[in-house]
């Protein structure tokens, strides 16, 4: 469903979309069922002259069944949802790719801009060939990245909707995670945690490019710091 609104551009985006669909169908069935019964009762049991309402305590066993069986069914549905949620969560938040097969990138939030420290051609952070950009993150498609998320001042949130990725940046803490893009393009990076009056302008762009283009960009910019033009 989410793909109707925006592309799924990371490896785990489709997992999240799948989970959302699963929950949608489970709760959707319950929701429709409840509303249908509810409105049916309202229409069926409208006040009619001379008809007295029934006296039902709901305390007897065969009456309580009408509650306890749906109760058990809800519980079973919950198990499926928990299972789906936990698997997706473990994959996104608790698994880190091996350093050999991934590239680190440092993401720093501050009032009110994002700074991205790319590892540069050597694939390592804190080396002279690091490329620092402001409000523009450049990555290579089909390649795993490990991000290190930091904040300089207040809480921020590193959010890339097309990746379905969100993570708060917290001062005094380094948070790690990963992503792998599956299609090229240029998309929004948001700050999704209120961070002061400039929260509404704290936008960045992520540029996902093929390996060759990305390598060209790196060699072009490698030694010196580049300040990319901010988006309007």
């Amino acid at each position: 469903m989410l793909e109707h609104y925006l592309p799924a551009a990371s490896t785990y985006a489709s997992d999240i979309d799948g989970l959302v669909n699963l929950i949608f169908w489970i709760v959707g069935v319950w929701f429709v069922l409840c509303q249908v019964v509810f409105f049916y009762f309202i229409i069926k049991f409208r006040r009619k002259p001379g008809v007295k309402a029934q006296y039902i305590t709901g305390e007897e066993k065969e009456q309580k069944r009408w509650i306890s069986i749906p109760h058990a069914l809800v519980l079973i549905c919950d198990v499926f949802i928990v299972y789906g949620a936990v698997t997706v969560w473990v994959d996104i938040k608790q698994t880190l790719p091996e350093p050999e097969e991934s590239t680190p990138v440092r993401v720093i939030g501050q009032q009110w801009a994002w700074t991205f420290v790319h590892a540069g051609p050597d694939g390592l952070l804190d080396t002279p060939d690091d490329i620092e950009t402001v409000d523009e993150l450049r990555i290579q498609v089909n390649h795993k990245y490990r991000y290190q998320l930091e904040s300089e001042d207040v809480l921020h949130n590193f959010s890339i909707p097309v990746f379905r990725l969100k993570q708060d940046a917290i001062p005094g803490r380094v948070i790690e995670g990963w992503f792998e893009a599956t299609q090229t393009g240029t998309f929004d990076v948001q700050c999704a945690e209120i961070c002061g009056i400039g929260h509404g302008i704290m936008a960045a762009r992520i540029v996902i490019e093929p390996a060759a283009d990305h390598a060209a960009w790196m060699s072009e910019n490698a030694p010196r710091t580049v300040l990319a033009a901010t988006t309007p």
Binding site: R46, V51, K52, Q54, I67, V74
Partner: peptide, 25 residues
């Protein structure tokens, strides 16, 4: 997700209360 159970149950009970009633809107 566990807390959804008692809340759902409350909604079921309210719907069940309407059953056999003489509803005035």
């Amino acid at each position: 997700l566990l807390i959804s159970v008692p809340i759902a149950e409350m909604c079921f009970v309210y719907i069940a209360t309407l059953y056999g009633g003489s509803i005035q809107l």
